[in-house]
Design a protein around this nucleic acid. Structure first.
Lengths: 195, 195
DNA sequence: GTCTATATCGAGATAGAC
DNA sequence: GTCTATCTCGATATAGAC
């Protein structure tokens, strides 16, 4: 199925040709490292071993590529949000979601920084409706459907700590498993979750 | 004086003409909003009401402007680091430093995101020796001079949480005082500091 | 689906007058 | 200290052949 329970169109269900997927994969890696503004179509084309014109044949504008890449990555969280919403207990729902978010963030360290901080992605997340809806749904679960200031600050601290810690050069030499464990311990303590 | 106890040259002591200061102030605001790559010299010139050539007369390259802006902002933390190092008790030293860092981060919300996440600033912080030395000194105090994995993860979580929370759109409508209090409560709990 | 070639624009940067 | 004018390069983007 391509729609969620709330009627929203699932992210990542846009049909893509193999050539389009190759563009998105190449663009993802470059954008994660250099940011959107720092990544040119020439760099993407070079990474693929083709010319700029070939890339333009797949996507009409650079914006479409950025949207495509963002959509592809956010899609990995769709299942986590769905699973969390299926839980009846809000605390357990948060636990389920947080575990998945931490896993995803650790597995994709470089991209998380860009997703959370690149000025162009930020603007995109605010202006592109499917992204807005998804983010809003995700943070809704994180806040446990209560709109207290404390809940919002906790959710923001959580996402900031994850995003910030994961890309801090201080932690470059810490392996994924250790980092994941430390982050889970931290988030569990911060957000008063069940073990 | 322009050197620290450890012999390092203090950041922010570079002599600047008034015209240079005007450039840095204009550049700071633009870079904070659009990132380094997203800020052109034309944008800086327009914001100042002069031409590009006038800007180039003050700084030979865009890189020098970026270095200048970064130096100017990091300089606001020099006093905090000095005060912290003057404390004999490591726990109290961290407390002093954290308080100042939180204050600075809250007061300069948009810039903190760029400082921590812009790819070009990141590279600069790693390559420009004065910046490397300062950052290293700052994190040294944060870690309390013990090199355990836990201390490093805590320091990284701290800086990530501050940076991430401060610019999260979720918290845009929370006033500075409330945000500062929430961050202090969080950091105190996270890093096992005295109240 | 990919190519060569090209158009157009804006970027960083410089020369020299005032 | 600022200006006009200009250079060069690389960016996004398009046209049309294979």
């Amino acid at each position: 199925m391509t729609t969620t329970d709330s009627g929203r169109r699932r992210l990542g269900t846009t049909p893509r040709t193999p050539a389009q997927k190759r563009v998105l994969v190449a663009a993802l890696e470059l954008i994660a490292e250099h940011g959107v503004s720092g990544t040119s179509l020439q760099m993407i084309a070079d990474a693929m071993g083709v010319t700029k014109a070939a890339v333009y044949h797949q996507f009409k504008t650079k914006d479409e590529i950025v949207v495509g890449v963002t959509e592809m990555e956010l899609a990995t969280l769709e299942d986590a949000v769905a699973a969390a919403k299926a839980e009846s207990d809000p605390a357990r729902a948060r636990k389920v979601l947080l575990t998945q978010v931490v896993d995803m963030a650790v597995a994709r360290r470089p991209w998380v920084r860009t997703l959370q901080n690149d000025p162009i992605i930020i603007r995109l997340l605010g202006e592109h409706e499917p992204f807005r809806d998804f983010i809003s749904e995700l943070f809704g679960v994180l806040q446990g459907d209560e709109d207290s200031t404390t809940a919002r600050v906790s959710a923001a601290l959580f996402s900031g700590a994850i995003g910030g810690a994961i890309i801090n050069p201080l932690l470059d030499d810490i392996d994924d498993a250790t980092l994941r464990a430390a982050l889970m311990q931290f988030t569990t303590r911060m957000m008063n979750l069940p073990d």
